[in-house]
Structure formats: structure tokens, C-alpha cells
Design a binder for these strands. Structure first.
Lengths: 209, 209
DNA sequence: CGGTCGATTGAACTCGTTCAAAATCCGTGG
DNA sequence: CCACGGATTTTGAACGAGTTCAATCGACCG
């Protein structure tokens, strides 16, 4: 992002501080804003008629969310952590993008990257067993400087077990069991519920994706 | 799409006629072109290390595919049907989009719509049983005038059972069994392998999505 | 009419779910 | 600082939907 784009964005942006549990928007709400995470973690989820819930994504620092074609949000967005979110009025962002083709191009590239990521997720959900899914999830988290400290090898997970389970499309108990397997294999060590010590190299070659 | 955009696109486009089995590109190929289906059906799939295959999408008339961030295609694209495909050199399309912000915006909107569609697919894969998955697949096909004739109620499926199975992330046999269930419930009738008579209203309320 | 390939059916098995119980974590107040 | 209580996670055991593998069926083609 060019400095000029950056300042143009900030000019129409509005920062908000959030705490764990803050609801950014609900599915069905009018889609008035596009959001960007500055710090913290946001959970994007969708509630089904029968009460089940699918977690579609966790958004970390730098990620954009809330792009909805059709005027209404299709999902819920909730902060999991204390953090800071930037948001932009949809129309104003739209104008800005039209006036700055290179900036719009960044968004387009970002969107196609997102599509590839989701394809990866579809493959993961369809073809791999529970342990592999959990490994993939942990690797995804480790990719974020936000919550993984390479020095101490400690991964800090801001989300609950049901969040992880609903993200990977499995039962909460299955996540527990998968973590148990990985711990017995000495690939991870559960310090406490939200802190894992991780042997990253071993975790990596445990995921033959 | 404005007429002017249309002609600008055609100016850099190159039409190709395809027959069933034509390979448009393979995963790993240099991503030189963006494709658009004019008529026919294209299967987008991804091969895994262990020989399994995931079908990621079927692309029908009007659909765009082959957008790859990173210079290489991640997936395979194969024509399933006789048809006509338009393709555009990636760099030239990129230039064109930069010079026409509204046209780029269309692509961006298209991409966000695609993201929503894929989220729907993730939910489908994660939360619903085989019969529901097949119902969703059939409904998706019926949405295409290409292959569903509302007058005769006949759906023409250009893809094989393994294609459907790999699309929904289930075994081929499970697709057969699901079709059997739907036929016993008089919701569909298998005329032959590639032609189904469909009771669309009943099919619709059989999918509580 | 026989042969081949894809689709369907059948039967055993497996992985993940479900439901219930035990263990652990964590905030609160003594 | 430690003990208590509710919530979350983990563990255990039974169950079930879907897979797997093998056999049968059916359509298409020489």
C-alpha cells in the first residue's frame, strides 16, 4: 500500500477499541461498513437454522472483513480479544477505490487470495481426518506473529475449544482428542487451555498437505 | 457490463472451441490467462499428493475462472462439454482493469460474491449429511438454464458420478445411494445416468438450508 | 451377442459423534 | 493465600453415518 493510499484510507476511517465479546455486526444487519483489524482477533461465524454454528474465519492484524455483496452481512463478527478495529463506510470506500485503480487492484488481488485460501479450507474439510485438521489450524495460528512467539515456542490461542471445533467442522470433543494425540506424540504441550508449547518443525511435517 | 467494456474486453480476448476432455490448464502451470465460459461446462479440480481429487467448482456460461495470485494456477481446469471459452492474457486484462475502474469494480464484486458462495459450500461440507449435499448440488445445477429445462423438468448433468462425489466431498457410492433415496421419495427420477426428471418444488423444500 | 466401463447395490468396518462423567481451569470471596 | 463453585475441557463408552471393498447391474459399442 502506497503512503498516499494509506493516508487516503485513514481519512475516511473510524477507529474503534474492542474488548472480548464485542459484536461488530450480526448476520442480516445492513452492510454499512468494511472493517480492518489493526490488532486483536475477530471471529467470523454463521448461525444455522438448527442452532449449529460454523466459524468461517479468524481475522488477525491486517485482515479485512465485512465485504458483503447484497447489502446485508451474511455472517457475525465478534472480537475475541482486546484490540483495535478500523472501519470504513462502504460507499465512501467504494468511491475511494474507484478513484484509485491501483488501490482497488490491491483489494481485488486480496480477494482472489482469499478465494484460494478458502479452496484450501474446502479441501481440508473434505479430505483430511480430525488430527490433520487441528494441525492445519495450529499451523495457521503459528503463521501469526500476533499469537505465536518463535523464541519461546509458545502459541497463545484467544479462542475457545468450541470455536476451534466449529471452525474445522468437527465436534469439540474431537478437538480435545486430537490435541491429546499430538501431545502424546510430543508435538505440542498443553501449558494451559490457551497456551500451547509447539514443536513447529515436527508440527509442519505432520501435515502432509 | 457496459457495451464499451464489453468491446474492450473482446478486443483483448481470444476465443477457443473446446470438446469434452479438453484441458484448459493444470495446477502448477504458469498462470498466463484468465478464462471466461461462453458456453459449456468447465470442471475446476485439485489433485492431492495421495491421489485423491477435490472438485472445487463447475463453471457455467458467464463464469470467470483462472484468477491465480502467485503466478501459477493452483487447480486444473477441464472442459466437460462441447463449448466455447474466451480467454484473456493476464497482463493485458490487468492493464484494462486499471484503466477502467468501474470494470475492475465489477470483478471485485464478482470476487466477493464468489467468496460468499464458497462460504456456503464450506457450511454445506461441514454441517450437512450426504442427501442434503446432493440436493444442494442438484439445486445448483437447476439454477443454470444451460442444463435444466423448466418445461420438461429434465436436468442434464454433463459430469460423472465421481465428479459429483469429489465436488461434495463424499464417496461415489454415497452419491448413488443419495440419488436412490431421492428417487424412492419421488423427488427425482433417473431417466438415464445423465438425465434426471426433477420435481423442483419438492427438491427445494427438501433442502432446509 | 459378448465385452467393457460406469453406476448401483450389498455388507463389513471405521472414524467421528454423542451423551455422560470426571478433571481442570479460573474468578471470587473469605 | 487458599478454598469454593461454575464453566470449560478432557476422558470414556456406545452408537451411527459414511466409507470401503466386492459383487451385480446396465448401457453402450464393436
Amino acid at each position: 500500500m502506497t503512503p498516499s493510499d494509506q493516508t487516503a484510507l485513514m481519512a475516511i476511517g473510524e477507529a474503534m477499541d474492542v474488548r472480548p465479546g464485542t459484536k461488530l455486526f450480526r448476520q442480516g444487519d445492513a452492510a454499512t461498513h468494511i472493517y480492518m483489524v489493526e490488532s486483536g482477533v475477530v471471529r467470523i461465524s454463521h448461525d444455522l437454522l438448527d442452532g449449529k454454528r460454523q466459524v468461517l474465519a479468524f481475522r488477525w492484524g491486517g485482515d479485512v472483513f465485512g465485504m458483503a455483496a447484497g447489502g446485508r452481512y451474511l455472517n457475525n463478527a465478534d472480537a475475541l480479544d482486546k484490540g483495535r478495529i478500523q472501519r470504513f463506510q462502504a460507499e465512501r470506500l467504494q468511491e475511494l477505490l474507484l478513484s484509485r485503480p491501483h488501490m482497488q487492484n490491491r483489494f481485488l488481488l486480496q480477494a482472489t487470495a482469499e478465494i484460494s485460501l478458502q479452496q484450501h479450507r474446502i479441501i481440508l474439510m473434505a479430505k483430511y481426518d480430525v488430527v490433520t485438521k487441528v494441525v492445519a489450524f495450529l499451523l495457521e495460528c503459528c503463521g501469526n506473529g500476533q499469537c505465536f512467539d518463535p523464541a519461546t515456542q509458545i502459541l497463545k490461542l484467544p479462542m475457545s475449544r468450541p470455536d476451534i471445533a466449529d471452525y474445522m467442522g468437527v465436534a469439540t470433543e474431537s478437538v480435545s482428542r486430537a490435541l491429546g494425540v499430538l501431545e502424546r506424540r510430543k508435538i505440542i504441550h498443553r501449558h494451559d487451555m490457551h497456551h500451547l508449547a509447539i514443536d513447529l518443525p515436527r508440527l509442519r511435517d505432520c501435515a502432509r498437505l
